[in-house]
Amino acid sequence: MTKSELIEKLSGEFTQMQARDVELSVKEMLEFMAQTLQKGERIEIRGFGSFSLHYRDARVGRNPKTGESVQLEGKFVPHFKPGKELRDRVDI
């Protein structure tokens, strides 16, 4: 399922709302979630899971084309931990 398919599904469910508002809302939810992580804050959605940031230490990387060494800065990467309900529902 893609974002546009998700928007279509929700528009079909929320017939009392303008389809345009559903679309804007879905996009805004994702934008707001991205902004939250960008600020270094966590997201906790009961029954779904939580998003947080994990730190990756600085390291010396290599340009795979040239074999040249490059110093890479430490950085944060997004991390998702599925919640119990999602884990149970997805398991076979």
């Binding site: 991205a34 992580l37 960008q38 944060f76 990467v77 991390h79 884990r87």
Partner: peptide, 20 residues
């Protein structure tokens, strides 16, 4: 069967330098 999340490039670049 488990769920994994693979962040997109855009999200990854946005959080790289997040305040600790």
């Amino acid at each position: 069967r488990v769920v994994t999340f693979k962040p997109g490039q855009k999200l990854k670049s946005r959080v790289e330098t997040a305040p600790a």
